[in-house]
């Protein structure tokens, strides 16, 4: 540490250097990292779809040749890895089935299936086409993982409080729907609650059907794991906290609040207060179908 006296030339040089560095850091932050996050979460969701389509096609095609394997291996990406790396049915050995998370019993079963398979033969050309598809699926899964890591890490930096209460991916989807952190910070909680359920909302306005209780927020496990009659209340509570979180993240920078603790407390209370389903028989009017993205299947979840 060089101790230079305030007012001296050395001190002033140090000061100017610090000012420039600070301004550079500020400029970098004003490159709107939230908009990059919005693109990344959409790319993540796109990649999910490509991955699903590609892996499903590869496994269906490969199933003509080795249908038993498709039945035995639930993890689509793991299956595609095997197709890409091992290839034809005859290639499966105890060695190359190692390290894929199978039990010994499973390995034995696969080898047995190999010997008695009811699948047809496959030409080298078709096998190589399937392998290409399968390795594309594997690559997509890696891309998906990297995007997911980026979203999680960036959400912690750009919107730590939203990330804390909503979870990184759901928070990012809300931001994407709103069009950025600035817009999300301006939305009332009632809008946040049904972001992603616009179709259902307009239908309800048009036809008098019941308004939607949740959109993207349905993906939050506190909502979709809860019994039906609690979901609206939970979604509203969640939306309230997210609205506060977004404002803090946008206007006050990164100050951290204990919103999550408060949220958990309120959710506990809702669970207690509304333990029993409501007595009154629900109206028999046709319920509008839930809009928005279906809850994520666990198959492609990392970890």
């Amino acid at each position: 540490m060089t101790e230079t006296a305030p007012g001296s030339a050395d001190f002033e040089a140090l000061r100017q250097k610090s000012i420039e560095a600070a301004e550079a850091a500020i400029r970098e932050a004003s490159s709107r990292p939230d908009l990059h996050l919005v693109q990344a979460i959409q790319a993540l969701d796109d990649t999910d779809k490509y991955l699903n389509i590609t892996a499903t096609r590869a496994s269906e095609w490969y199933g003509l040749h080795f249908p038993e394997l498709i039945q035995m291996v639930q993890d689509n990406v793991g299956l595609c890895k095997m197709i890409a790396e091992i290839g034809g049915r005859e290639g499966y050995t105890a060695e190359n089935l190692q390290g894929r998370g199978f039990t010994e019993k499973k390995v034995a079963a696969i080898l047995e299936a190999r010997d008695r398979s009811k699948g047809g033969t496959i030409s080298d050309g078709d096998l190589s086409r399937v392998k290409t598809l399968a390795s594309l699926a594997v690559q997509l899964s890696a891309i998906r993982g990297a995007l997911n890591d980026y979203v999680e890490a960036q959400m912690k930096k750009v919107a730590p409080n939203v990330s804390d209460v909503a979870g990184a991916t759901i928070g990012a989807r809300l931001m994407a729907k709103a069009g950025g952190l600035d817009r999300l910070a301006m939305l009332p909680a009632s809008t946040i609650q049904i972001l992603g359920a616009e179709k259902a909302l307009f239908r309800s306005l048009r036809t008098g059907a019941r308004p939607p209780k949740h959109g993207i927020l349905f993906q939050h496990q506190a909502v979709h794991m809860a019994p039906k009659w609690q979901r609206g209340k939970i979604a509203r509570t969640l939306a309230n906290k997210i609205a506060i979180a977004a404002r803090v993240d946008f206007y006050r920078g990164s100050e951290e609040l204990s919103l999550k603790v408060e949220l958990d407390k309120r959710l506990e209370r809702i669970k207690e207060l509304y333990k029993e389903p409501p007595k009154r028989k629900p109206e028999t009017r046709e319920r509008p179908r839930r809009e928005g993205r279906p809850p994520r299947r666990d198959k492609f979840r990392r970890r």
Binding site: I19, A22, A25, I26, A29, S30, Y251, R252, G253, S254
Partner: peptide, 12 residues
């Protein structure tokens, strides 16, 4: 020392 760029701008 301030780590939130938005407010740090005014400070600087």
């Amino acid at each position: 020392v301030e780590f939130a760029p938005r407010v740090a701008r005014e400070f600087v």
